[in-house]
Computed example of a mutant assay.
Amino acid sequence: MSKHKVIYDTDPGVDDAMALLFQVRHPDIELLGVTSVFGNGTIETTTRNALYLTGKFAPHVPVARGAGAPLVREAPGPLPFIHGHNGVGDIALPADDQLGGTLDPRPAHRFIIDTVRAHPGEVTLLAVGPMTNLALALAEAPDIAGLVKQVVIMGGAFGFHGILGNVSPAAEANIFNDPHAADQIFNAAWPLAIVGLDVTERTIMNAAYLADLRDAGAADGQFLWDVSRVYHAFHLSSEGLDGIFTHDASAVAYLVRPDLYTTRSGPVRVLTDGLAIGQTIQKPSTMPVPNPAWDGRPAISVCIDVNAPGVLDLYRATIVRG
């Protein structure tokens, strides 16, 4: 029996693809479904990529198409300079009618509701894109907050180690793309952990690491190498980094090895307007000063430090088997 039943809410995306393969190959994860959301591409692009990835690596796993725009704001444009024109590093993709994945007829938020209700207390929502699908599910079925096992998201930044935002000096992309949804899910009464830039940008797959995955990981390793070429080039040109940040795969690592992370507890708010829209701010549980904007909201575990070599070893051991 699998230890973690997961719905993967994602906007593939190169790092999303790398995180999906991590889940498929990890023995303690049972992937119940993939729900697409706008973000790294349009909803058409991210849904196609989800179908391609599940068809290639997990053909038994259904895909449910999700939200194409934020709750309030306009949808962002595609990011071809980061993820390639097709969203998955410009690797060759089959024709749309040959992707191999299975599209569930339900919208993503309804798939989430039905699956959580079918497995009370067992399902982890692992969300690595804008949180719109989760907010829509909560709005339609508030009872699921008491039925999920936990929610783990990749998103946000809290200023630890000098790390702030990646789309503005204040905001990380997943939160920025739908700050209203993020603030809503941070107020739900479910166990929630945030794996943000504070730890994902300290976990770096450098060029030698990626080459080792390619050489030692057989077909999986070659896929990871191929899909990460555009992403690697972006990091080199924008950050001077000869490697890539480990964003979405870090949320998977937290799920299976939370001992690799140091966390801080306390409620989290998201700024939903103004110059710093998308900023995530935690009031630590140890802070005694009253503040009604945070007080009364649930405590959230925010990752503030990481055993980065341990995370990289975990990823490699999961991909390079035998």
Rank of each mutant, 00 (worst) to 15 (best):
H4L: 02
P12Q: 14
P12Y: 13
D16L: 14
D16E: 11
A17S: 15
M18T: 10
A19N: 01
L20V: 08
L21E: 01
H26E: 14
P27N: 11
E30R: 09
E30T: 14
L31P: 04
L32N: 06
G33A: 09
V34Y: 15
T35F: 13
S36Y: 06
G39L: 09
N40M: 15
T42F: 00
T45L: 03
T47I: 04
R48P: 05
G55P: 07
F57E: 00
H60V: 07
V61S: 00
V61L: 00
V63R: 13
R65E: 03
R65L: 12
A67L: 08
A69H: 00
L71V: 09
V72L: 05
E74D: 06
F81Q: 15
G87T: 10
G87I: 07
D90T: 09
D90E: 06
P94T: 14
D96P: 02
D97R: 06
Q98F: 14
L99I: 15
G101S: 06
L103P: 11
R106I: 04
P107Y: 04
R110S: 04
F111N: 09
I112L: 10
I113H: 13
H119I: 00
H119F: 02
P120Q: 06
G121W: 09
E122L: 01
L125K: 01
A127L: 04
A127N: 01
V128S: 02
G129S: 01
N133D: 13
A135P: 03
A137S: 03
A139E: 11
A139Y: 08
D143Q: 08
I144A: 02
I144C: 07
A145V: 01
I153Y: 00
G155A: 04
F158N: 11
F160A: 09
V167S: 11
P169M: 02
A170P: 08
A171F: 09
E172G: 09
A173M: 12
N174F: 02
D178Y: 05
A189P: 02
A193N: 12
G196C: 07
L197V: 12
V199M: 10
M205Y: 11
A211K: 15
A218L: 05
A219L: 12
Q222D: 14
F223H: 02
V230F: 01
H232R: 14
S237Y: 14
L241E: 12
F245E: 03
S250G: 03
A251F: 03
A251K: 00
A253I: 06
A253Q: 00
Y254G: 06
V256D: 03
L260E: 07
R264N: 14
G266L: 01
V268W: 02
V268M: 03
L271Y: 11
T272K: 13
G274E: 06
G278N: 04
Q279W: 01
Q282G: 05
K283P: 05
S285E: 13
S285A: 15
M287Y: 12
P288L: 01
W294S: 05
R297P: 09
A299L: 12
S301L: 11
C303H: 07
R316K: 14
R321H: 15
G322R: 08
G322E: 15
